[in-house]
Amino acid sequence: METYKLFNWFKEYGWRHLFALLFVIFAIYPILFVATNSVADFANLTNSKLIPDGFTLKHYKLLSSNPLVPYYSWLFNTYKVAIIAAFFNVFLGTLAAFAFSRLQFRGRRASLLTLVIVQMFPSFLAFVAIYLLFFQISDVAPIMGLGTHFGLILVYLGGSIGFNSWLIKGFMDTISPSLDEAAKVDGATEYQIFSKIIAPLARPILVVIFVITFIGIYSDYILAAIFLKDKNLWTVAVGINTVFVDDFNADWGVIAASSVIAATPIAVLFVFFQKQITGGLTAGSVKG
């Protein structure tokens, strides 16, 4: 009887747990591994293991004390670039989305279609041309040329603004037009309708778009790697994938510590906004 029950349980539920556990291990092992190794008291990758024998914070301390690895400058650069770019992205995207959603004009549908087509091509595809373009901008206006955060931010703006306008427009379409029609009857101008009615109501989507764009820029490697040459100006993605690769074994503890610091805020953001981000992702924006 007992065996039969167990067998039945296994047939209904048990095998599911078995496979789920298997993939739990697969999913979580590298994450646990890097987390424990970042505080583990051993020298290198050779003698690393999942559960370390001793604990230490020395790897984290090393990150702030090694002048050849300005890790916290990288972190600061990354936040600076990602926040500024994401902010303007949302700001300019909202303006455009308002026009697409609320104003009638000739070529509206054509412009929308252009947006969709353009966003099919990731902006980094033409990185050769972007590189050469900024090569020339460096001559004319060095403050936004190659090697500057300013130039990098501009490129990030160009890359995702079309897509974001599209997403925001989609949300604005769901806001009932009766609201602004009433306002219009009262003689409200376009700008007033935008700033008093539509923009405040669209706030939830704006937050989500901001987070998605922020994560996307934070995780970018290729454009940052092309743009930033000075070690002190690197972003985290460029920094940790450049300085440690020569001596992977010896630097393992520090690699783990820097990975944890770089990944944690994003992971937290992600878990917090998981539903909304996945919604945005379903449309293929950040990764997938």
Partner: peptide, 17 residues
């Protein structure tokens, strides 16, 4: 969901190890 929450440039580095 966790693997998805980690930026790829970090996960790839760990896998390389």
């Amino acid at each position: 969901i966790l693997p998805y929450a980690i930026p790829a440039f970090v996960s790839v580095l760990v896998w390389k190890g």
